[in-house]
Design a protein around this nucleic acid. Structure first.
Lengths: 336, 336
DNA sequence: ATGAAAGCGCTAACAT
DNA sequence: ATGTTAGCGCTTTCAT
C-alpha cells in the first residue's frame, strides 16, 4: 500500500497539496493537479480511510443491527439502508443480534469503538439499554420496534392498522372464529398486532375468545405448534391470523399435515409479505410491510442526524398494505 | 468520548501503562491495574479502534461481499461468517453487490481503503478483476462461485454432484423428459448444475433434448417465464429441475397458474433448500446446500490466512444433499 | 498556489 | 514495573 507521502514525493509536491487535490478542497493549479493525479494512478494509491477517520474524527460507516438476518423482512430493510448508504458514500457494518440482547450490547460497543457515524437498530431489548451507548454521542435510529429511551428517532410500521385491516377482511368474508398466532409479549410489534386483531373484533361487535388467541416466539416451529393446537380444537377456528412471516410458514406446514384445504377448511392471513407468498398454492393473502422503504427512511433520517440537520426527534409510522390473494377465498367466492 | 490520555491522567500513570493493562501485554502491578480499571469504568472509556487500527496497521474487520442479500442461500452464508467472526472478535462489513460488477468493484475499493483484514467474496465477475484488489495485499476467500485469478482460496459446493443426484432421482422415478431451468452462463454454479443434469442423463442412457433445456437469470420472474414455456410445449416435460431457489419459486407460480398438480402432472426438484420448502403443498424436494457451513468454512479459512497460517492455496468443495420430500411423488407411489 | 508542521488516539521499542 | 518517545497516514491551520 502506497501512502500519500510517496505520491507527494513522486509528484514533487507536499502531502498537503496531494490531500487538497484529492479532496477537491482549497486551491491548486491544474498543472500540479495533473502531476499528482498521474502519480496516484501510477502508484495505485488509495487513501487510508483509517488514517483519515482518525484525523477528522468521524467515519463513513453506518452500523446496522438487526435481530434476525434470516428473516426476509429484515433482508429488505437492509437493502434499503444499503441503497442510501451507498449513494452517500457510506459503508454499512451489519450485525445480526440473533434476538440475543447480550450480542446486541456487544455489537453496540463494537460500533462505538469503531466510531461509526450512526447506528440503525432493530432492538431485541425494549428497555434497559446502556445509556452511554444509545444516546448523545452517536446518532441512533430505532426501526421496527420501539425502544424505551427518550429522544430516539424511530421508524415503525403501523402494526395496529395492518392487523386490524387483515382481521376485518376475514370478518367481512364471514369469519367470526379467527385464531390468532401472536408474537413475543415484550416486543412492541407483537403487542400492536394483537391490538389490531382485538380492535377489528370490537368494531364488528364480535367478542374475543381467549381460547383462539395464542402467542408464539416469531419462529417457524412455534407457528407450527400453535396452529396445530388451534386447528385440533373441537370447535376449530375457520380462519387464522398470524403475526409474522416465519410463523405463517409453520402454520402452513401444520395445515398441510392435517390435510386441511386453504381456504375451504381454513382461511389464512399472514403478517409480512414474502417472495414466495405468490407461489404458494393458493397464493397467500398478507399484510405487506413497506420494508425496503423502512430501511431507506431510516438511512435517510440517520444521515440527516449525522449532518446535524433537522433536529427535533421524530417518530414515523409507515403504512402497511393488505395484499389480497386467494388464501381467504377468492373474491368471487366470497360474494357468492 | 474520553481518551487514553484522560484515563492515564485520572489513574496517575502513563498512557503506555494504560495500554498495557487494557491489552494484557507486558507487566504491571495489580495495584496500578486496579486504579486504571476503575478510571476506565468511571470515564466510560472505550478505546478507539480507529486509532488502534492506524497504529497496528490492521483492522478487526472482515469484508463480505455477496451478490444478492435477498437470497436465503446467502443469508445463511452470512450467518456462518458472522458466527466465526464474532467468536474471534472481528466485525463484518457486509456489502450487497446486487449482481452488479461495478458495485462489486466499488465495494472492493472501499474495503481496501478501510483496510479490512480480509475479504470474503461471492463474485459477480468471473474474470477481469482488478489485480490490485484481488490479490496479494489483502487475503481473499472466494465463495460459491469460482474466480479466475490464480491463487485465490475458494470454497464451493459440488454443484455437479448435487444436480446429478437430483436428476438421477427423477429418472429413477420414471421420468425421461425432464425440463431444465438453468442459470446464467457466465456464473460457474449455473454451468456446473447444467453439467450435472447432463451427466445424469448420460449415465442412464437418456439422450438430451435441447428443447427442454433453457436458461434464466436466477431471478424469480425468469423461473416463471421459462416454466411457462416448458410446460406449454405440445409434448411437455413430466418433471422440472430448477437451478436455484428463486427461479423455483417462479416455476411454482407458473405451475399453479396453469392449474397443474405437483407431482401428478409435473414433478419438481429445485436447487437450494429454503425455510418454506417444507411448508409448500406438497413439500418440495430439493438439493440442500450446506450454506451456513460454507460461511463458517470461509470465515475460518480467512482467519487463518489473516494469521498467515496454512499457506498453500485451497479449493474446497462441500457436498450438497438431496432432501426428498413429496414434490416428485411419494416413495410409495413410485414403487407401485 | 503551495509548504511546513501539528496532531488525531493509540502502541511498541527503548530506556529506566 | 513503568515512563518517554516516535510514529502509523492523513487533514488542516498558518505561513509564505
Amino acid at each position: 500500500m502506497s501512502t500519500i507521502k510517496e505520491v507527494a514525493l513522486k509528484a514533487g509536491v507536499s502531502t498537503a497539496t496531494v490531500s487538497r487535490i484529492l479532496n477537491g478542497k482549497g486551491t491548486f493549479s491544474s498543472s500540479t493537479e495533473e502531476r499528482v493525479l498521474s502519480a496516484v494512478k501510477e502508484l495505485g494509491y488509495k487513501p487510508s480511510r483509517v488514517a483519515r477517520n482518525l484525523r477528522v474524527q468521524r467515519t463513513q460507516l453506518i452500523g446496522l443491527i438487526i435481530s434476525d438476518i434470516q428473516n426476509p423482512f429484515f433482508t429488505s430493510v437492509i437493502r434499503g439502508v444499503e441503497e442510501v448508504a451507498y449513494q452517500h458514500d457510506y459503508s454499512v457494518i451489519l450485525c445480526n443480534s440473533d434476538e440475543d440482547s447480550i450480542k446486541e450490547q456487544m455489537y453496540l460497543t463494537v460500533m462505538h469503538e469503531e466510531n461509526v457515524a450512526g447506528i440503525i437498530l432493530a432492538t431485541t431489548l425494549e428497555r434497559g439499554h446502556d445509556e452511554k451507548l444509545i444516546c448523545c454521542e452517536i446518532p441512533v435510529v430505532a426501526i421496527d420496534r420501539t425502544i424505551d429511551n427518550i429522544g430516539i428517532d424511530t421508524i415503525l410500521v403501523d402494526n395496529i392498522l395492518g392487523a386490524r385491516e387483515a382481521v376485518a377482511h376475514l370478518i367481512k368474508l364471514g369469519h367470526n372464529r379467527i385464531g390468532l398466532i401472536g408474537g413475543l409479549e415484550h416486543v412492541s410489534t407483537a403487542r400492536e398486532r394483537q391490538l389490531g386483531y382485538e380492535r377489528a373484533h370490537h368494531e364488528f361487535g364480535i367478542s374475543l375468545d381467549q381460547d383462539l388467541m395464542k402467542s408464539g416466539n416469531f419462529k417457524q416451529i412455534s407457528g407450527y405448534k400453535i396452529a396445530m393446537e388451534l386447528l385440533t380444537l373441537r370447535d376449530r377456528p375457520s380462519a387464522l391470523f398470524i403475526a409474522n412471516n416465519l410463523m405463517t410458514l409453520g402454520a402452513l406446514n401444520a395445515i398441510h399435515s392435517l390435510g386441511l384445504n386453504i381456504p375451504r377448511d381454513v382461511a389464512v392471513v399472514g403478517f409480512d409479505d414474502m417472495p414466495w407468498a405468490i407461489s404458494l398454492n393458493p397464493p397467500l393473502t398478507v399484510v405487506a410491510q413497506p420494508d425496503y422503504e423502512l430501511g431507506k427512511f431510516a438511512g435517510e433520517l440517520l444521515l440527516k442526524r449525522i449532518a446535524d440537520q433537522d433536529l427535533e426527534t421524530k417518530q414515523i409510522r409507515l403504512i402497511p398494505k393488505l395484499v389480497i390473494r386467494e388464501s381467504c377465498g377468492s373474491k368471487l367466492k366470497s360474494i357468492s
